[in-house]
Design a protein around this nucleic acid. Sequence first.
RNA 1: UGGGGCGUGGUGCAACGGCAGCACACCAGCCUUUGGAGCUGUGGAUCUUGGUUCGAGUCCAGGCGCCCCAGCCA
Length: 561
Amino acid sequence: MNPEENKPTDFIREAVTEDLKSGRFNYVRTRLPPEPNGYLHIGHVKAFMIDYLIAKENNGELILRFDDTNPVKEETEYVDAIEDDARWLGIKWVKVTYASDYFDELYNWAVKLVMKGLAYVDDQSPEEVSAKRGTLTEPGKNSPFRDRDVEENLDLLERMKNGEFPDGSRVLRAKIDMAHPNINMRDPVMYRILHEPPHHRTGDKWKIYPMYDWSHGQNDSMEGITHSLCSLEYLNHRPLYEWFLEQLEVFKPRQIEFARLNMNYTVMSKRKLLRLVQEGRVQGWDDPRMPTLRAMRRRGYTAEAILDFNQRTGVSKVATINSGVMAEMALLEACVREDLNKRALRRMAVLRPLKVVIDNYPEGQVEEMDAVNNPEDTSAGTRKVPFSKVLYIEQDDFRETPPPKYYRLFPGNEVRLRYAYFIKCTHVVKNDAGEVIEVHATYDPSTRGGDAPDGRKVKSTIHWVSAAHAKEAEIRMYDRLFTKEDPEEGEEGFLGCLNPNSLTVLTGYVEPHLSAPKAGDRFQFERQGYFCADLDTAPDKPVFNLTVTLKDTWAKIEKRG
RNA sequence: UGGGGCGUGGUGCAACGGCAGCACACCAGCCUUUGGAGCUGUGGAUCUUGGUUCGAGUCCAGGCGCCCCAGCCA
């Protein structure tokens, strides 16, 4: 295939190409501007990859710049985690910077605007500022302090910086237009006073901190960023972004906005994710049910699958919800399945065990059966799996009275035990409650390996483990965190539709080759799904996380009835 | 409501005035020592009304719908 034809194109890439062609810029430099106030989630991947790939495709550079303008919310802990997650995705940057690196220079730029008569110190209270901003339909009112002279503004700004005034007593505002139809242009705040807490990098040096709008574009300019790519909610801020750079008479990057990525059955807002953690609804930021990269990693997702998902969801300006699109979890799952299908070793594990006794199999005999490690990859080779008289099979693979189209094990039916023998169910043993606790069967010695010399066929192949050789394992089954496609919608809020069954902990039996996994090892448990050894796995107790189930055609048939 | 953005199958993206296509999902079938994987096929979309044009998803005008903005958050 011609790689040229395959190259992804979208309105941003077209604009960048056009800017290079027209000479607006003669190089490409993008920036990744995470705020270190939470962990990265699947929605961030889109912005990260757009910034990274567009720089890369144009032989340009990417700068990782932490947007740390608000010490109240930001912590170093998050900086390290964000870098780690971004590296895991394969993103490379030329350097790491911080908005706080530019606090001095930015302050000088503010002084410049004050001297041009384009910024002023406002002594109004936050409430007054808010009240006079106007509404969507009514213009705002000028502050009584709007026309202070330059000298007074300079003096006051200097004293704000020196910490002479309490929090909230004054702000520096750009002098634009209180009647502007775009509310962002109604004399936006540039600096606010904040004595506490100390900034994670600058400590207590600063008593004033810049607002996003005052910091971001100016930092872009200082770093020579050509394309400042951001999500759709900043569209309304672009006039302000451009106004500052215009008045400052400095290098002007181009801001381009795109739709954010939301996903059904989960939430992306950092505030909401933080609540899930703080209220103990999940066990932490890396709880495998979370949409954070750390959680998905722990759950067994590969970076390749996530990148593939990102590529398949594309780039656009469509905003149907929350300034973006709502992608389907099903697509993400299809991406991991596709990736793991090619690379995961197959193993047999019984999640909900049911004992099977093969009455005509010699007591004490053990055979080593040859099993294929990965039918999609012959280089993965084969392994030996022990077989004996007493086995465990999946409870789901036996029915005393089978429903229509069920062709697994039931009294009188013959099935194949994968890589072993045909067995036929003869009778069952029940407990006092009437539950089947033991299934009895006979095997056909001539079917060793799984084929009958007489050519007879069985409709079903089921997996098993030898009871005497099995290892007990903890298996954590995950389901979607929320029961509604859009948990944010509706009266009761996102906490009102948490899925009570999002985690089910099982004690199952796994084959010997699964008895000592390393955390992070991924396998396909045959006929069930992809699993990943958890961080909690220990030498004496393997722990596995369900990454994603296999497609389950039978479950679909049964559900339909 | 003022301003801005956006409307293509269920979802996400293509089609750059010339036969509306791809992926996932869905449905049917084939195959199968994973009811996995793979393969084949079916159904289903241009918000609406007018206009321009030989020809409109694409251009123009009106309408409708959805998203974003009234933090000293980013």
